[in-house]
C-alpha cells in the first residue's frame, strides 16, 4: 500500500502556500497532520500530483481566548486541545467531544483544520463546529472569507474549499458560564468513528427555563447537523423527563440516516434518540426512568 507518485512542497508562508495551490489547480492537495489524507493515499483513493504541506506555516498553531471568542488555529492538534487546561474551562463541550477523537498517535498529529477539511460525517470537530455556530476563516488567492461551519460543509467528505484555499482558523463563540451541556456518542471501539453522536447545550434563565438550545448530531447524515425541531422543544421549557422524551422522539423523526456495513439506518435513528435522552438528562442532572 505505497502512496501514488506525487510531489511535495513545504512552503514557509501562507501566501506561498496559496500560490502553490493556485499553480497546480485541482491537482494539489493540502496536507497538514495527514491523518486522514495519508490513509486515502495509501489506498490510492486520492492521487494528487502534489502535496502542499502547511505544517510549518507560522501562526496557525495557536489557541487564543478573547472577548470575541475562542480562536483555534488550523494546525492545532487534538493533543494541543487535550493539554490546554484553560481551553477545557473555556469550552468544556469541545474538550469532551475531542476526547473521543481517534487514538494517541493520531491525536498527536491530527489537526482541527484537517478534520474540518476532511469533513467526515461522523467526526467530532465538524460536529462541534456546527453545533456551536463556529465561524471559519478561509484564505485564498482572491482574499479571505469567513463562513459558518454550516456553510463550509457541503456533504460527506466535501466542503466549499476552493482549489487554492486554505482553512486557517476556526472561531467558537464564547461559552457562557453555568451553561448546561453534554456530549454523548457510541462507537464500536474506543477511538472509532461514532455510530451516532450528540452534542447538546442550552442556557438557563432566571426562571429555570432553557433557552438558546443547540443540539447537533454526528454520524446520522452526510454531514453534522443541528436539529432545530428539537431545539424548539427545549427552548422556553423546564428540562424534565417529559421534555427530554419528547425531544428524543422529535430527534428520531428529524434524521434520515443511511444503511451501511456498521449499522442499519433504523439503529442509528433510534440510537440517536437514546443518546439525546442521555445527553439531556446529564445536562439537566436528572435521572430518567430506564425503559427495557
Amino acid at each position: 500500500m505505497k502512496l501514488p507518485p506525487l510531489d511535495y512542497i513545504c512552503p514557509a508562508t501562507l501566501p506561498e502556500a496559496i500560490a502553490a495551490l493556485a499553480v497546480h489547480g485541482g491537482n494539489a492537495k493540502v496536507i497538514a497532520g495527514g491523518q486522514s489524507l495519508m490513509p486515502m493515499l495509501a489506498f490510492r483513493l486520492a492521487a494528487p500530483s502534489v502535496l502542499v504541506d502547511i505544517g510549518r506555516l507560522p501562526d496557525l498553531k495557536s489557541i487564543s481566548i478573547s472577548a470575541e471568542g475562542i480562536d483555534i488555529g488550523a494546525l492545532v492538534t487534538w493533543r494541543d486541545i487535550e493539554r490546554d487546561a484553560q481551553l477545557a474551562q473555556a469550552h468544556p463541550l469541545l474538550a469532551a467531544a475531542i476526547a473521543h477523537v481517534a487514538h494517541y498517535q493520531v491525536r498527536n498529529r491530527g489537526t482541527v483544520g484537517g478534520s474540518m477539511a476532511h469533513a467526515d460525517p461522523a467526526a467530532e470537530m465538524p460536529g462541534i463546529a456546527v453545533t456551536c455556530d463556529a465561524m471559519l476563516t478561509i484564505v485564498g488567492s482572491t482574499g479571505t472569507r469567513i463562513l459558518s461551519a454550516n456553510e463550509f460543509l457541503t456533504g460527506g467528505l466535501s466542503t466549499v474549499l476552493g482549489a487554492d484555499e486554505i482553512l486557517t482558523s476556526i472561531r467558537l463563540p464564547l461559552w457562557k458560564k453555568a451553561r448546561r451541556w453534554a456530549f454523548e456518542e457510541l462507537a464500536r471501539r474506543r477511538g472509532d468513528f461514532a455510530l451516532a453522536g450528540v452534542a447538546a447545550f442550552y442556557d438557563i434563565d432566571a426562571q429555570g427555563l432553557a433557552h438558546n438550545a443547540h443540539i447537533g448530531v454526528i454520524g446520522v447524515a452526510d454531514r453534522p447537523m443541528r436539529l432545530p425541531g428539537v431545539e424548539a422543544i427545549l427552548d422556553g421549557r423546564r428540562i424534565d423527563a417529559d421534555v427530554i422524551l419528547q425531544a428524543a422522539a422529535v430527534a428520531r423523526d428529524a434524521v434520515d440516516p443511511a444503511d451501511d456495513i456498521h449499522a442499519e439506518a433504523a439503529y442509528r435513528r433510534d440510537l440517536l434518540g437514546v443518546l439525546l435522552e442521555r445527553a439531556l438528562a446529564r445536562a439537566a442532572n436528572i435521572t430518567l426512568p430506564e425503559a427495557a
Binding site: G34, M38, A42, L51, D53, Y104, Q105, N108, R109
Partner: peptide, 15 residues
Amino acid sequence: GAAVRGCLVLAAQAE
C-alpha cells in the same frame, strides 16, 4: 517527543 504513526507521516515531513 510525540508518538506518531510512521506510515502516516511522509519522510519529507520529518525534515
